[in-house]
């Protein structure tokens, strides 16, 4: 039997934390791309696209991420497609992230005053041009702080992938606990490592929010 020093515990947790970070990136970037698609469907003039986007968001926000992971992992496998844990984790987290980001961004687009649309329309810009030149650039500025804030939720969401067997920070924590019998130390360290990843993101998002609020009031 092997013996773990505290350094061994921390080293193994740090190594596993890499995968938490990688998975968070994948989910955040992939989710951002899918969210854009959903967003455009949600605000498009096509009724079916709008309905699809609404159901999509409703479904992914209305069911536990854990269930989405289980279904992605075991469900797709039953169709005869081999899904390794990391892929199932990546796909489920991407789709889940997309649902939330799409809603956040929709709020930002809708916060743009009607007059902006009307003004753009009166300049004879077509729908795509209105979006691209007038609405999106403004909406994007508003969207940055809540998007940065949501990245914290993504990082924490990756903890659930441990349940389908993806070895990231939380899973490493449970494995190491069983090799060391020191749950207090191990889970304490796991929590601190998550905090070290998430806290700067939270702070950054708050900072952006304040900066924007200040710019907004001065601008008037």
């Amino acid at each position: 039997m092997t013996d773990f020093s505290t350094w061994d515990i921390l080293r193994n947790l740090l190594l596993a934390a890499r995968w938490t970070v990688v998975l968070s990136f994948v989910a955040f970037i992939g989710g951002g791309i899918v969210a854009l698609l959903i967003l455009f469907m949600r605000i498009s003039r096509n009724r079916f696209a709008r309905a699809f986007a609404r159901y999509y968001v409703e479904l992914f926000q209305g069911t536990p991420l854990l269930m989405q992971l289980f279904l992605a992992f075991f469900g797709i496998g039953l169709l005869g497609i081999d899904v390794p844990a990391w892929l199932a984790a990546g796909v489920a987290l991407t789709l889940w992230t997309a649902a939330f980001l799409a809603e956040i961004w929709r709020g930002c687009v809708e916060s743009i005053p009607r007059g902006q649309w009307e003004g753009a329309g009166s300049l004879a810009l077509d729908y795509v041009q209105q979006m691209r030149l007038v609405i999106l650039p403004q909406a994007m500025r508003v969207a940055v702080p809540p998007t940065a804030g949501f990245s914290v939720q993504v990082v924490k969401g990756t903890a659930l992938t441990s349940i389908i067997g993806f070895v990231e920070l939380t899973k490493a924590g449970t494995i190491v606990t069983n090799a060391t019998f020191q749950p207090f130390t191990v889970y304490g360290l796991v929590a601190l490592l998550y905090f070290a990843i998430c806290f700067p993101l939270s702070k950054y998002s708050k900072y952006l929010e304040r900066k924007m609020a200040a710019a907004y009031t001065h601008g008037r």
Partner: peptide, 10 residues
Amino acid sequence: PPFGSVGSDM
């Protein structure tokens, strides 16, 4: 353990 566990190198 002892059927399957991890060493300190995981």
